[in-house]
Structure formats: C-alpha cells, structure tokens
Write a protein that binds this DNA or RNA. Structure first.
Lengths: 209, 209
DNA sequence: TAGATTGTTAATCGATTAACAATC
DNA sequence: TAGATTGTTAATCGATTAACAATC
C-alpha cells in the first residue's frame, strides 16, 4: 500500500463496485479476472481499473489477471470491511426499515446495531430483531456499542439536529439520506445518499416534448 | 440558452441542489441571492455556481445577484420540471413505499402515478392512494398514463429483468436503486441511487483501529 | 459615485485514457 | 516461445477556480 499519495474520492467509490462484482464472480467459482473483463461488465476503462488497484498494491499477475479471492480480500482490507463496523440509524420510517433489511446482505462487516426514533408510535417497536430506542439513549448506546457510523433517515428539517447529536455522541462518519445539506466538524466524513438529485437530474435528459 | 455546448453531468446534478435551496429562500421570502451566498450555504465555489448558471442564460444582475423567484422558474424549465412527468415504480417493498411518500413533497411536477410488484401478497394492496399492479400490466399502463421514467426498487437479481420490461414498455429513463449495474439501450438514460456504495466508501475514511 | 456582483476568459488542477515495456 | 495482461508513464481530456472587465 503506497501511502503518501492521496487517493481521490472517485477511486474510493469505485472500490465497492469492484468488490460487489468480484463477490459475484467468486460465487460462480471464477478463479481469475482481467481488467478487460471487469471493464466490460462495469462500463469502465480497463486502464482506469488497473490504475485504481495499483494505488494500493500490485494485486495482479502480468499475462494472467487478478485472482478473484485474493483481490476480494485486498479490497475488503482497503475499505476496512475486514473488521466489524457498527452503524446506528435514526429515523424508523419506511426508508429506515428498508435499510435495516440490508443487514443480512452485508454479512458481518457493516451492521446496523441500533435504531432510534423519537416518535412515540415508533419507540419500543421492533424492526427485524432491533428495538427502536428514543433519541435520549443515542449517546449512551453509541458509546456502549462502539458505533462508528450514523445513518440519517429523518425528514429534511430534522436532519441537521440529528447530525449534531451524532457528532456529540462521537460517531466518525455520517450517511445522510435527507434531501438537505448538513454541516459537521471537519474531522467527520459525510456522504449524501440523495435520490431526489438523481431523479430531478434524470428529468433533464428526457426528450423535449 | 446556449445550446450546442454540451453540458456535463456534474453541472446538471448541481441544478437540483440549487433549486432546493432557492425554494427554501423563496419560502422565507428572500428576494435576491448572490453566488457568494449560495456557495457558502451549499459548500460550492461561487465561480462554479455562476458558470453553471451561465451555461443556460444570463439570469443574474451585476452588482445585485439573482432574483430568487426568477431563477427558480428558469431552473425548473431547464430540468423540465415545469411540465408534469409521470413515473412508475416497480418493487412495493419498504424502499418503494418510502419513495411513494415523497409524492407530496414533489408537488405536481414529478409524480409516481403507478406501482407494480409481482408478489401475490403485494398485488392489489394500496400504497398511499395508489394500488399495486402486477407486472403484466406494466406496458399497458406506461402507455396509457404516458409514464416517462421508471424506478426500480426490487432486489438486485431481478433488476435487469425489470429494466428490460421498462425498456420494452417505452420509458425514456430509469432510476435504479438495486445494487447492481443494469444494461439498457443507448437512447435511455440510467441513474443509479446505490447507497451501498456510499456506505462502503464511507468505511474507507474511518480512522485506522 | 463607490461597492457589489455578474459573466467570462485564462490558469490551474485533477481525472481519465492511451501506450508500452515488463513479464507471467 | 507466443499471447495475454499487468503496472506505470505520458498524453489527453475535462472540470474547477482565479481574476477581472462590465455594469447594476
């Protein structure tokens, strides 16, 4: 792993895409894959894939390609998915519910281990095997369960407030689904999963009527 | 509107962000806003904002800034949100449900007008005021209701199949929430709303433990 | 008029792609 | 050995930012 070189966000975001397809190949018992194969399937330039991977080490074999199992292991290490990462979710609506359903899919790396919501009709109910806690317990549970990532699935007007509480509780990163920009201290990382942007920008590409 | 110049996707994706904040300003009865103000609030470079807008026309006034109401109108035109755009959704799970709840939020521009799911326990149930149809009715309803955008909220293994049916039914664009890459003919536009990429890439930025 | 702010050009920065020696 | 494919450098392409004349 060549440290010192700053890896761009564009590169980091392609790693999960590689990982997902590699897992698929592995399940089909494919041993080896070339950047050519990957590029074809993922709509990416093979040179870009090789360059992305080369930031982190020499994972391939000239003339052969990449060993699928080995590359999976390496990308999991790079993304820190070789350790369990606990996640808390605030907002037990339909979206929050949907995300909890992914727990199975994530295997044992990245796991939603606590759900919060302040609405009286939600507190105490169960989502899968997790009970919904009131926000007053956020700080305590984040500490006790060593939760490192917070997911926000509340309506936009409440998102900043929830973010503040996550910051105070000590999470290291936030994934915000609310369609609004939240401000946090520099040492935290925030990603936005804002589908309204995807949907509205899609409209731009429709044919003129 | 200077046509001929190809507008990059990065520019197009910022337009909904501008629009959202402008709507907020408008609701607070703010008359005018500068690229400076916008940049501060949206974490963007003011020069970039001016350049983005200038691709489409001269919307501002030197020394003053942009008229909020006027700019809202213009961006809505650019994004084609000044006409109603009907949307179909396939996959009546929690995620599909969550998206249907946004209908109110979208006012009358972009509207989910039909929901589909092939699971017997779903067909015929109601989501808000929409009844869930079987997939066999997709083509007919897309035509009858002039649906132009398809949203996919089914599990990954079914996503490509649903996409094919959308293509056949004649939608112009697809928003795919399934964590897999779908292939469609070139004349269609596909956007991916894949939160697993956001979540996994977030892990990369956690502190080494 | 003086201050503010646009629209736009030029400069910079960064990301993608092509090309190819090295080598399995 | 011949063919395939990597890792990496150099070339290209595109996006962001700085700077500033124009002007409200």
């Amino acid at each position: 792993m060549k440290s010192s070189v700053k890896i761009s966000d564009a590169v980091v975001r392609r790693l999960p895409v590689y990982l997902r397809f590699l897992n698929e190949l592995n399940m089909r018992n494919v041993q080896t894959v070339s950047s050519q194969d990957l590029g074809l399937k993922l709509d990416l330039n093979p040179a870009q894939i090789r360059k992305d991977l080369a930031y982190f080490g020499e994972f391939g074999k000239k003339g052969i390609g990449y060993d699928v199992k080995y590359l999976i292991e390496k990308i999991r290490q790079i993304l820190k998915l070789d350790q369990q990462i606990n996640v808390a979710l605030v907002g037990a609506g339909n979206l929050g519910h949907a995300l909890c359903n992914y727990n199975a899919y994530f295997k044992d790396n990245m796991k939603i281990t606590a759900v919060f919501d302040n609405h009286p009709s939600k507190v105490g109910t169960m989502i899968n095997n997790l009970s919904v806690h009131p926000m007053s317990e956020l700080a305590r549970i984040v500490q006790e369960e060593q939760i490192r990532i917070g997911i926000i699935t509340v309506p936009a007007p409440e998102a900043q407030h929830v973010a503040n509480q996550f910051v105070e509780a000590g999470v290291e990163a936030i994934l915000n689904f609310a369609p609004t920009i939240i401000k946090v201290p520099n040492e935290l990382r925030v990603h936005h999963a804002d589908f309204t942007i995807e949907l509205f920008s899609l409209a731009y590409y429709l044919e003129e009527k």
